[in-house]
Design a protein around this nucleic acid. Structure first.
Length: 692
RNA sequence: GCCGCUGUAGCUCAGUGGUAGAGCGCACCCUUGGUAAGGGUGAGGUCGCGGGUUCAAAUCCCGCCAGCGGCUCCA
């Protein structure tokens, strides 16, 4: 007797072992037809899985009860689609060796080792999709069979795929005593793959399938290991959902900060200047400067003091800090003194020798600073400090340079020169908790004001297996605990990630996603017991003895470049009034109103508003379209009627109809007010409340 | 750095070996028009860069540079 508990709590009894499909059939034939898998005691399973003992069973169908696509069903669909794609690819490219093909949030991929003389190209996609469609049409059942570990390994051995052997070995090492295969059809005759499952019942259940892109990857993610080709695809139960997904991708592209950066003239990257080096155009500079001025004002209120430092420092500084030579690969090559180069050259030093000296750190010169902390530390250390002076909070919009790999560079979000809204706090150990909390609240204020509420907090801990970290493990433990406690006190989504720490200490990061789902680290707070040690920092305590201060690194935005990039996408380019590069555009209805329009614009500018007049010889319809294209928050339309009444007709971006008319002075006041309060009171609301 | 794709006017893109194209933008002219594109004329291009094949290359081949998607990396 097997007792099956269904999601609604009801219990069904069966004489003996039963499959999930039979359970579904016992409930209703329509459910059985719609079923693509099952959850047995919470574990996603094949519909054909035999349930031997009492269990809680939920039948997985394409859609949940409220009509939404079921994520478990999509998982099955995509995992199965990966098999179909692999079979199609192996038909087209004989000798392609399968490695690993998991489902993803929006699709799936399969890592495949292609023969050297037959790489996969995008031109193959059409043929692959045609094969896949054919396989789907054949509606072959996914058939699972199992073998004991030893027998299974022997089978793989004879087939000769080192990748599948490796997968199997890993499964065995993880405790499996048997291996499972899925044949797409009949075991022994049809295509099959070593796979843990589960799958949809048959290929026909995969409704719509598309090969998306190619990338290279490394076996086990190890760059010294085999290079594989990763083929990305996606699948849905029907074409409509696939089309909706593709459409959403197109829409996301439109709010990509690189696209909007061009369209709205916010920044420029120029080959002749260099990759990953951002040129801020006047419009983009306004956004950055507004953010800097705003956060700078908050810092002054919180007891920070500004400092300024050069962009370079002697190598010795970075040897002390630990940045050089350990992180050479991500630094620009040092700027060496002419005299030094000439001297080693005279001594017969070759380029290779010089390179080796550099690697060993056995050279002199200057480094473009990869971080601001060493300079700030030297300001702290420039005079004796008393415990009464602490905490000392030194802030600077400090520009740093990092040699990112060329394939990593990405618009504003990954660059080689960026400005950190940086500060370093030097405090007593007993002040650390308060200071960390102060930093976190600042990050919260910043993100809340901008409406960036969809972030996760990541506590970056050290990777116990890595040797890249400096400092005493006991000190690390203390700092990690301080970060955990502080992050927990925020009350939001917190994840702990070993290996994400800075080399000098653990950190708390605020991580957001961009329009295509990639995560970027923005604000960060890092507790550091190590650099004060390395630089021998001190203060005199109330006991008249010297003590070591603790340092906190923090940047609420992270990098101005990345932050603005994320903000562009967050607002889809339609910035709130206080940040908008062009806040008001005055649109005269015809040339007859140009003077009146100009006078209005002058009034706005005199109040500090970023306003312009559109004096083009266009009809007002076209001027409205152009203003909308630049996502200007407010348009002020003026014609003879307005001039006579001393009024202005107001339009707001994103609102189809005009808001209405108001006296010129009221409009100027309203705009100035909305800017001053950073949008917490909006001009549009006045019209709504007035019922216009 | 690795694999694939892409690179043509300021922008978005068409152009498969035979005289360099369109729309938008820009300039000028007509129009003086009241809420998401009035009409006309014109300027603007070493077709990413360098080699090669060819009578002839934007187009085919090789190398490089840059961008995009991933991988790896990310103090």
């Amino acid at each position: 007797m097997v007792k099956i508990t269904l999601p609604d709590g009801s219990v069904k009894e069966f004489q003996g072992p039963v499959t999930a499909l039979e359970v579904a059939e016992s409930i209703g034939s329509r459910l059985a037809k719609a079923a693509v898998g099952a959850k047995v005691d919470g574990a996603l399973s094949d519909l054909s899985t035999r349930i031997e003992h009492d269990a809680a069973v939920a039948i997985v169908t394409e859609k949940t009860r409220d009509g939404e696509a079921d994520p478990d069903a999509l998982y099955l669909c995509r995992h199965s689609a990966a098999h179909v794609m692999a079979e199609a690819i192996q038909r087209i490219v004989p000798g392609a060796q399968l490695v690993y093909g998991p489902p993803l949030e929006n699709g799936f991929y399969y890592d495949i080792a292609f023969p050297e003389d037959r790489p996969l190209r995008e031109g193959d996609f059409e043929a692959i999709e045609a094969e896949m469609t054919a396989i789907v049409k054949e509606d072959r059942a996914f058939t699972r069979y199992e073998m004991p570990a030893g027998e299974g390994m022997a089978k793989l051995e004879s087939e000769g795929s080192k990748y599948k052997l490796d997968n199997a070995q890993r499964a065995i090492d993880a405790g499996s005593d048997e291996l499972s295969w899925y044949a797409t059809g009949e075991p022994g005759t049809d295509w099959e793959d070593l796979c843990r499952g589960p799958h949809v019942p048959s290929t026909g259940r995969i409704g719509a399938i598309k090969v998306m892109s190619l990338a290279s990857s490394y076996w086990h993610g190890d760059e010294n290991s085999d290079r594989l080709t990763r083929v990305y695809g996606t699948a849905f139960f029907n074409k409509k959902d696939l089309d909706a997904h593709l459409h959403a991708l197109e829409e996301a592209k439109k709010r990509d900060h690189r696209v909007l950066g061009k369209q709205l003239d916010l920044f420029h990257i120029d080959d002749e200047v260099g990759q990953g080096l951002i040129l801020w155009t006047p419009r983009g500079s306004i956004i950055r400067k507004e953010l800097q001025d705003w956060i700078g004002g908050e810092l002054r209120k919180m007891g920070y003091t500004d400092v300024f430092c050069p962009h370079i420092g002697k190598l010795g500084l970075y040897k002390t800090s630990g940045h050089f030579p350990y992180y050479q690969d991500s630094q620009f090559v040092p700027v060496m003194e002419r005299q030094f180069i000439e001297q080693v050259s005279e001594e017969g030093c070759s380029c290779g020798d010089l390179s080796n000296m550099m690697r060993a750190g056995d050279i002199d010169g200057y480094l473009l600073k990869p971080m601001n902390c060493p300079h700030h530390i030297k300001i702290y250390a420039s005079r004796p400090r008393s415990y009464r002076d602490l905490p000392i909070r030194l802030s600077e919009f400090g520009t740093v340079y990092r040699w990112e790999q060329s394939g990593e560079l990405n618009g504003l979000t990954r660059v080689r020169c960026f400005t950190v809204d940086d500060a370093h706090l030097f405090c007593r150990e007993d002040q650390v908790a308060d200071e960390v909390m102060g930093c976190l609240s600042l990050v919260k204020i910043a993100l809340d004001t901008l409406g960036l509420t969809d972030f996760r907090v990541r506590v970056g801990l050290r990777d116990p297996d890595s040797s890249k970290y400096v400092g005493d493990p006991a000190v690390w433990d203390r700092a990690e605990q301080a970060c955990r406690d502080a992050a927990a006190s925020l009350g939001g989504k917190v994840t702990e990630e070993p290996g994400e720490a800075a080399f000098y200490g653990p950190k708390i990061d605020f991580v957001v996603k961009d329009v295509i789902g990639r995560e970027w680290q923005l604000g960060t707070v890092q507790v550091d017991y190590n650099l004060p040690e390395r630089f021998g920092l001190e203060y005199v305590g109330s006991d008249n003895k010297t003590h070591r201060p603790v340092m906190i690194h923090r940047a609420p935005f992270g990098s101005m470049e990345r932050f603005v990039g994320v903000l562009i996408e967050h607002f889809a380019g339609a910035f709130p009034l206080w940040l908008a590069p062009e806040q008001v555009r005055v649109l005269p209805v015809s040339e007859k109103s140009n003077d009146y329009a100009q006078a209005l614009c002058d009034k706005l500018v005199a109040r500090g508003v970023r306003a312009t007049v559109d004096l083009h010889n266009d009809r007002v319809q076209a001027k409205i379209k152009h203003a909308a294209g630049m996502k200007i928050p407010y348009s002020a339309i003026v014609g003879p009627r307005d001039e006579e009444a001393g009024e202005v007709n107001v339009r707001a971006f994103g609102i189809k109809d005009a808001l209405g008319s108001m006296p010129v002075d009221d409009f100027v006041d309203a705009i100035a007010d909305e800017i001053a309060c950073k949008g917490s009171e909006r001009l549009t609301e006045r019209f709504e409340t007035a019922g216009v």
